[in-house]
Design a protein around this nucleic acid. Structure first.
Length: 632
DNA sequence: CCCCCCCC
């Protein structure tokens, strides 16, 4: 421990204007961390926590930030207060006229060490010695020139001019390639920067038309090793830049406007975004060696439950199931194709992720690949779900350590694991099978009524879902099933040559009966009319509709008996309530999404009664009997 | 200056 040697003097060299910056950059100094403090970004759902650290060389100390890709070193306890580190890679820039070191890569030499020396602040704030300048951003009026950024030089303002003259000589034409700024250091307070960034995503050109006017635009996501930022070009700038900026390529970009990103719209992890303007300079960079293709901040699938709905996150998982291509009709009558993937990971959780449009149509990986997703949206369907944005990134079998680890784990037996689906219900394992049914969110019919009358949601626009346990009181006997087209399920009509489907424009010898059920249900608080279709009917009647209709045609009395047997049966229903209009009258329609027979062990588990010790014991016993009944 | 990103 005692043989650790800090790189004395490095802090002063970092703030010394006359230093050779390249030498300082490459010196890989050994330093001690004096403090680690989490800094949470204000607002926004996609903001990643950051760590501010203070580093010391034993004589002086400096403020620094950890690049977010190093967050896990702190989160997992590998590094902390008084750790000795070797800074292998960093960048330094001016923020509020103070230098801020961003540590991009480091080695931990000693995790725990006593404090070395009595270091002083290498960069005391003029005036009071506190860090007020940093905490109170001065408004930059015209009278207060913004500080000149500096990453490749650590000169202060006077030598800066000298430095820029030197650069002018080496790079007369084109952009100032020496003065590369980290994306993470960009802010509206800086000008004269150049970033070197990869386009990781480029949107199509979109047009808009509203009361404020019309126009066109496109977005890109730009990334370097410190962070990412969204750039937007409007109108003329679209013509100028759309073809120039290609997805996957790296560019020098300067003279764009840095502005606050509106947090309700951002899907990219940055407080700011870039507005491309007429004078914005974009030049392709062919040396792409030093830039990673993508930077992730993975959340384990088990951790999705800690994220709020609509949060944006990165995940990596093995695609265990690939759903069929389907389509949905969105609110505005748009039809969109979709495909659901089921991801699993080492946390033994699974989650469904929806691909849209082209990505859904073109997905064809059938060999359970590892797939990394960046910037996907967290939903709460069935507990937790994920959905792609157009700005999200999907990378199949990425060449990154996390992917290799996951592959190894999966192939070495992880694929045999049973995965827990996200669910709010008490019984997580059951939650997966129930898919959307949340026992802990069960409501009485009265509570459903109250919820519906108090909701601010426009029920004609957006349906509300609920689960309730109720007993069937009555089923309308007439039209309990309809003759359906075996191909498209539409109603068919009997004609001289068989059963005619108008949609498929053909006739069938026999129809396929499908249930269409209107039933009165009740619980101890209320009654309601539910409507159910084929899946619901098969559960309620314990037989396909064809069979029930067979009985009806052969023996009316027996049919009446079957109908009667359903009365008094209790089920767990999951329903979708929507406001619909018939003949200018609006009414709420309760569509049954799912019917589940009761499972008495689980019903008890979820109840208050189960909290008593005696009941817990009995329930455990019941579970054991259920599991091992055959053996006992 | 956009801001849609959907459905069960």
């Amino acid at each position: 421990m005692s043989n650790v040697q800090l790189t004395a003097g490095i802090c002063l060299r970092l703030v010394d204007s006359s230093e050779n910056y390249d030498e300082v950059l490459n010196s890989k100094p050994t330093m001690q961390i004096l403090s680690v403090k989490k800094v949470s970004s204000p607002g926004g759902l996609n903001q990643v926590d950051r760590y501010r650290i203070i580093v010391s060389d034993g004589e002086h100390f400096l403020q620094a930030m950890l690049a977010t890709q190093l967050n896990n070193l702190v989160d997992e306890g590998h590094v902390g207060k008084y750790s000795i580190i070797r800074v292998d890679k960093f960048t330094c820039n001016l923020v509020q006229e103070r230098r801020l070191l961003i540590v991009l890569d480091m080695q931990i030499l000693v995790k725990n060490h006593e404090k070395i020396g009595k270091p002083d602040n290498a960069q005391p704030t003029p005036g009071d010695g506190a860090s007020s300048a940093q905490q109170t951003p001065a408004p930059h009026s015209a009278a207060t020139p913004a500080p000149v950024p500096s990453t490749s030089t650590i000169s202060t303002s006077a030598p800066q001019q000298q430095h820029q003259q030197q650069q002018g000589q080496s790079n007369r034409a084109g952009l100032n390639r020496q003065n590369i700024f980290p994306i993470e250091g960009l802010s509206p307070y800086q000008n004269n920067w150049t970033i070197k960034a990869r386009v990781t995503n480029k949107s199509d050109v979109r047009t808009w038309s509203n009361q404020r006017g019309e126009g066109k635009l496109f977005n890109v996501t730009l990334m370097d090793e410190t962070g990412e930022i969204r750039g937007t070009a409007f109108n003329n700038a679209v013509d100028e830049l759309y073809d120039k900026l290609e997805e996957g390529k790296v560019y020098y970009i300067s003279k764009a406007k840095v502005q606050l990103a509106k947090k309700q719209f951002t899907t990219v992890s940055n407080e700011y975004e870039l507005g491309f303007e007429r004078h914005t300079e974009v030049e392709e960079c062919r040396d792409t060696q030093s830039l990673p293709t993508i930077r992730y901040n993975f959340v384990p699938l088990s951790g999705l439950q800690d994220l709020v709905k609509d949060a944006i996150c990165d995940v990596i998982g093995v695609v265990k199931e690939v759903g069929e291509l389907g389509s949905i009709n969105s609110k505005f009558g748009k039809t969109v194709t979709k495909r659901e993937l089921t991801l699993v990971d080492k946390s033994n959780f699974s989650v469904r992720l929806t691909l849209w449009g082209k990505q859904a149509e073109q997905y064809s990986e059938m060999n359970e690949p590892v797939v990394a997703f960046k910037g996907v949206k967290v939903g709460d369907f069935g507990g937790r779900s994920l959905s792609m944005f157009s700005s999200s990134m999907m990378t199949i079998n990425p060449d990154i350590p996390e992917a290799h680890a996951l592959r190894g784990w999966y192939d070495a037996g992880g694929n045999q694991a049973s995965f827990q689906a996200h669910s709010n219900s008490f019984s997580g394992a059951a939650g997966g099978a129930l898919s959307g049914f949340n026992r802990s969110e069960m409501k009485s019919l009265q509570e459903v009524n109250d919820m519906l009358s108090n909701t601010t949601t426009d029920l004609s626009e957006k349906p509300v879902y609920f689960s309730a346990r109720a007993t069937i009181m009555h089923i309308k006997q007439e039209n309990v099933a309809y003759p359906a087209c075996p191909t498209c399920n539409k109603k068919v009509f009997e004609q001289h040559d068989g059963w005619r489907c108008e949609k498929c424009e053909r006739s069938y010898e026999k129809p396929e009966y499908r249930y269409i059920i209107t039933m009165a249900v009740a619980d101890h608080t209320q009654q309601a009319w539910f409507q159910g279709f084929n899946e619901a009917g098969e559960v309620i009647f314990h037989r396909p509709a064809n069979k029930l209709m067979e009985i009806k045609f052969e023996d009316e009395t027996k049919f009446g008996k079957v109908m009667e047997e359903t009365i008094g049966q209790q089920f767990n229903f999951t329903c979708r309530v929507k406001q619909e209009t018939y003949n200018e009258a609006t009414k709420l329609r309760y569509g049954v999404q799912k019917v589940l027979p009761l499972n008495y062990v689980e019903e008890l588990w979820g109840s208050e009664l189960a909290r008593t010790p005696i009941c817990t014991s009995v329930l455990l016993l019941l579970c054991l009997i259920e599991c091992f009944g055959d053996v006992l």
